[in-house]
Amino acid sequence: MTLTTRAGERRRPHIGSHAFLIVLAVAFLAPVVWAVLSAFKPANDIIRHPLAFDPSTFGLDNFIGMFEDVPIWHGFLNTAIVLVLKGSITLFCAPLAAYAFAKYDFPGKNLLFGTVLLTLMLPTIVLIIPLLLEMKELGWVNTYQALVLPGAVDAFAIFWMRQVIAAVPDELLDAGRVDGCGEFGLYWRIVVPIIRPGLAGLAVLTVMNIYNDFVWPVVVASSERMATLQVVLSTLASTISGNKIGADYATVTGELLAASTVALIPLLVIFFLLQKHFINGILAGSVKG
């Protein structure tokens, strides 16, 4: 189909590739564009005329209502704090532990890694109550610790980074040892530069996962002061999801779409900034030897 271009991967791509990507991008973006545009429509029109867009009726009512009704600024602040703290812990601890799993042999390794896999496979939802009981014992309900620490080093990150690091040739590590590198030095100076594309990918997915996470924050952050962006969104969403009982779901739908639109903006900014790192990562990755 579109993969028939003769040019190599490092050459300018064929028009067919663009066509494929554009079709895909349109399909992926269309619902989001619908949500963003709808946020400017009168709330009742979103339900009554979901596919009609009349710019003359556009306004900011949903946004104004949303800013009045939900603590979205708290949400931004808390999400930013959690993102920085939790993201740093994940990006530091997970690849380091994964390095040990991939490149060392030590007693207890297989048992430990097996348990990691087990937690990866266990649905989060069953762990909520035990975790919340634990938070209560620690006096951590409604604290940043509770938002940041559980899940800071998730099994997914370890699992993935172990795969990535396993691909680093052992000969490079041996050469490093000969050069007198310490064990952490091997990781920091040899492994990290090679796995940079993987780290960049992990950074992107970690940011997205933290940004998206709502099951745990909704439960553990009960006050508005501690609400993350997703908690704010889920407060709106819970009113309209399910069975539409009650009268006000048009209004709340409008506010939800407005909140979703506002919530997308910082993410696009973060993503744009990470993008540069991403490209640096590629360069670093491709000059490795």
């Binding site: 992926f28 619902p31 989001v32 949500a35 999801s241 939800l256 979703s260």
Partner: peptide, 18 residues
């Protein structure tokens, strides 16, 4: 790249509407 990522971070309930 952004286009492919955006759906992942769009709240599901907003999408369910459409």
């Amino acid at each position: 790249r952004t286009a492919f990522i955006v759906p992942f971070v769009t709240p599901l309930v907003a999408v369910a509407q459409i």
